[in-house]
């Protein structure tokens, strides 16, 4: 998607509006699990999907912009996790590169690849980047930030695995060609 002049117009728009969607879902789209203060963050499923659709750079920027704006309108910027969101988008896009979902290709093999990509990206972002930055920037206790990172990463893995995959499959089905269908009596 990157041309010699930088991002294509569509990528720019996908970053802008993708980040808007990320912000709206951060605010309204979390599913309470029943455990206090622990929600399934649906916006990471969307971030993984957009990274798959528009590439790693779009993923990086949607994560950075979306998380910054979402933080600014809720409780102020927490920089370590903002960066981790960007890293998640970048890696999810990088490792799911080459899946031709635009052509309706999203079968078993692609589902597996998409999920391996999101698991690596989640692990890197929440098991490593977020806690390490928490320690570097805020000098927070290591056991606390690693526990938080583990919990957040695991939850996001589950969310993306279920919702991300479901929506990606549904999207790929919208790309089916009309010629492949017949009416039934």
């Amino acid at each position: 998607m990157q041309s010699s002049k930088g991002f294509s117009v569509k990528t720019v728009v996908a970053i802008g509006i993708g980040a808007a969607l990320f912000v709206v879902l951060a605010r309204f789209g979390s599913i309470p699990t029943g455990i206090p203060n622990t929600n399934l963050q649906t916006n990471y499923a969307i971030l993984a999907l957009f990274a798959l659709l528009y590439g790693p750079w779009a993923g990086l920027l949607i994560g950075l912009i979306g998380h910054t704006v979402a933080d600014l309108i809720s409780f102020g910027p927490w920089f370590s996790w903002i960066i981790a969101s960007g890293v998640f988008g970048l890696l999810a896009g990088l490792f799911s590169r080459g899946i031709r979902i635009h052509d309706g290709e999203f079968g078993g093999k692609e589902i597996l690849r998409f999920n391996i990509a999101q698991i690596i990206a989640n692990a890197a972002a929440w098991f490593i980047v977020a806690p390490v930055l928490d320690i570097l920037i805020y000098a927070e206790p290591a056991n606390k930030v690693f526990t938080q990172g583990l919990a957040a990463g695991a939850m996001n893995m589950v969310t993306v695995a279920i919702l991300g995959t479901l929506i990606a499959i549904a999207y790929s089905k919208t790309r089916t060609k009309r010629g492949s269908l017949t009416r039934e009596a």
Binding site: G6, F7, V12, V13, I15, G16, I17, A19, A20, L21, V23, V24, L25, R27, F28, G29, L61, I65, G66, V69
Partner: peptide, 22 residues
Amino acid sequence: SYKVAYAISLTMRYIPDVQQEY
């Protein structure tokens, strides 16, 4: 880069619309 800067402007522009759609 102005493209990234404009993407942020689009985010601000479309948050209310996406929210309404949600």
